[in-house]
Every structure is written in structure tokens, then in C-alpha cells.
């Protein structure tokens, strides 16, 4: 695996919505490199014939009936919001649609 550059870390930070400082960029580039070096060991044993296990419990088809359950009032829903207007969550301007 390639070594992690500062730019790589900056790219990851953008993806993760973290406005890292310059000092953090450098620090994390070093630390992540060390950690990635260590965790790369997983490739030593994981053979093609081994199925990935994404879950410890082998269950499937867990469903709920299509029936209404009481939820929150709008007051409860908005109770923790940093900013509210007209029963809605007020957010800073959105640059453009996804």
C-alpha cells in the first residue's frame, strides 16, 4: 500500500467533513501510516476461499409489520436542534444540490 501523503489525509478529511488544522494533517498522516502498516496484516491470511463475515449473528429476514407506531411530536423532534424556524430545522445555506 502506498504511504499516506498530506494530500491524501486532506482528501479523507473532506470526505469525512473534518476541517483539520495543518498540524493535524501532518500528525494524522504519520499516525495513520503507522496504523495502516500494522493492520495490513489482515491480507496475510484472508484467502479467496474464505467468506467475508459482516455480522456475528447469522440471521436473515428480520421484518416488522407495516403498522404505525407513535413517534415524536415536532416539539420533541426539534428539542435538540441548534436552530429552528417554522417547525423546521434551520441550516446554513446549502451550496448546491447533491
Amino acid at each position: 500500500m502506498p504511504a499516506l501523503s498530506r494530500d491524501d489525509v486532506a482528501h479523507l478529511a473532506r470526505l469525512a467533513r473534518l476541517e483539520l488544522t495543518d498540524a493535524e494533517l501532518g500528525h494524522y498522516a504519520e499516525q495513520l501510516d503507522v496504523i495502516l502498516g500494522a493492520v495490513q496484516r489482515v491480507s496475510e491470511v484472508a484467502a479467496d476461499d474464505v467468506d467475508p463475515m459482516s455480522h456475528p449473528v447469522a440471521i436473515s429476514n428480520v421484518f416488522r409489520p407495516d403498522q404505525q407506531v407513535p413517534g415524536l411530536t415536532s416539539d420533541q423532534a426539534l428539542s435538540g436542534a441548534p436552530a429552528v424556524e417554522d417547525e423546521r430545522f434551520r441550516v446554513p445555506r446549502i451550496l448546491d444540490e447533491e
Binding site: D8, A16, L18, Y28, I35, V39, V42, V50, D51, P52
Partner: peptide, 25 residues
């Protein structure tokens, strides 16, 4: 940051995918 990296395109199989296999083992 570590998780964002491990899931990002091009690295998923090498990292997350392999880790899930180790889990099986």
C-alpha cells in the same frame, strides 16, 4: 479518518473486505 480510508474506493477489498474474512477465520 482511518475508517474513511478503509472504505474508500480502491481500498475496500484490501482492507475492509480482508478484515471481514479474518473475522470468519
Amino acid at each position: 479518518m482511518l475508517g474513511t480510508y478503509a472504505l474508500s474506493s480502491g481500498y475496500y477489498d484490501a482492507y475492509y473486505g480482508q478484515a471481514q474474512k479474518v473475522r470468519t477465520l
